[in-house]
């Protein structure tokens, strides 16, 4: 179908939903609330800030206390996440599973219409390098990700439509789009079993805790937490009580395992006191714990962490280093400035 059909669809969706989509801001792309549909980017570039704030806001009130603790009467606006890339849909699938029993997440999630976009090869920097690290995105199938509507931009510039849920089919039908492919969700775990690449990375991280790479990274890592901020699968959180005049608000706010006190006990013991421990904790979460618990990858190879790292730590390069043996080669980590 022509681009005009896509434009018409989003115009109609806007009648019922707030639209969030990638927008180019100077040189970079960000998920933004859309006022002008012409702003929306269709290049397939992954927005730098990921989409997680739509599903898991940076701060939300879990409970309010006046005479007793009660859940506030929150209103979750109807929102449409438009043009989510494949890695971000995979990350969303993980969040859906991790927060399956979380009433706040689920109530918000129910009101979000998820629309994906694929544009041939993902447009990321250093694509050749990225693909070595990535999970063969092209081979991944729509059957194993969560979405309502999916658009695939063909080489000719036309669009193919897919529906992945009852809601997606309804929205397309309401818009008189009949020429779409229905995709039956087949679970997050492929038919042949858990992702082999995920399992090999899991065992590599488990056996590489003594690798010298960690000391080298700890030398340069600032523990600034930017990687965890942009990571679509970093869902750690803190709970904080904020005292108001007459009430108390118990909030869930984004946390980062790079920040002080993340694992510190009241008595002072801190299990991630050093930068090396923090780095290992982050890698263990993505590559050991998440696969162990959900049989799903904890990293969707979006490359955002490498892109924002102020000292040029590149997750893909780190895996190359770790796979080179238990002792590792001399440090070859260069800064981004050095690369460009």
């Amino acid at each position: 179908m022509k681009f005009s059909a896509v434009e018409k669809l989003i115009q109609n969706i806007r009648q019922d939903y707030q639209i969030f989509a990638p927008v180019k801001d100077d040189k970079e792309f960000f998920v933004s609330k859309i006022s002008d549909l012409k702003q929306i980017d269709y290049s397939g570039r992954l927005p730098l800030n990921s989409w997680k704030h739509l599903f898991l806001p940076p701060g939300e009130e879990l409970l309010e206390f006046s005479k007793k603790f009660r859940r506030p009467d929150s209103v979750y606006p109807r929102r449409c996440a438009w043009n989510m890339g494949f890695p971000d849909l995979k990350a969303l699938g993980l969040l859906d599973v991790v927060f399956a029993d979380d009433p706040y997440y689920q109530d918000r999630r129910r009101n979000i219409l998820v629309c994906g976009l694929a544009v041939g090869e993902p447009d990321v920097e250093n694509y050749a390098e990225h693909v070595k690290f990535s999970r063969r995105l092209a081979e991944d199938s729509l059957e194993h990700v969560t979405f309502d509507i999916f658009l695939e931009k063909t080489k000719k510039g036309t669009f193919d439509f897919f529906a992945g849920s009852v809601l997606g089919r309804e929205v397309l039908s309401r818009n008189k789009i009949k020429n779409f492919t229905n995709v039956q969700f087949a679970g997050y775990i492929p038919e042949q079993g858990p992702d082999a690449d995920m399992l090999s990375k899991q065992s590599l991280i488990k056996k590489s805790m003594k690798h010298r790479l960690w000391d080298e990274l700890a030398e340069i890592c600032l523990a600034c937490g930017k990687c965890s901020l942009v990571c679509p699968t970093c869902f750690c959180f803190d709970t904080e009580d904020q005292a108001q005049e007459k009430t108390v608000s118990r909030q869930r706010v984004w946390g980062s395992c790079f920040y002080p006190e993340f694992t510190r006990l009241a008595g002072g013991t801190d299990y991630t006191a050093t930068v090396k421990q923090k780095l290992q904790f982050w890698y263990e979460h993505k590559f050991v714990r998440i696969p162990a618990e959900y049989a799903m990858p904890g990293c969707v190879s979006c490359g955002r962490c490498a892109k924002v790292c102020p000292v040029g730590i590149d997750i893909a390069k780190n895996f190359v280093r770790l796979s080179e043996g238990s002792r590792g080669l001399p440090a070859t980590i260069t800064s981004r400035a050095g690369n460009s």
Partner: peptide, 17 residues
């Protein structure tokens, strides 16, 4: 450890896997 959510989600008390 620093258990917080108590549900195995928030990560504050994680060790290994």
């Amino acid at each position: 450890r620093r258990m917080s959510c108590g549900l195995g989600v928030c990560q504050h008390c994680a060790i290994g896997d």
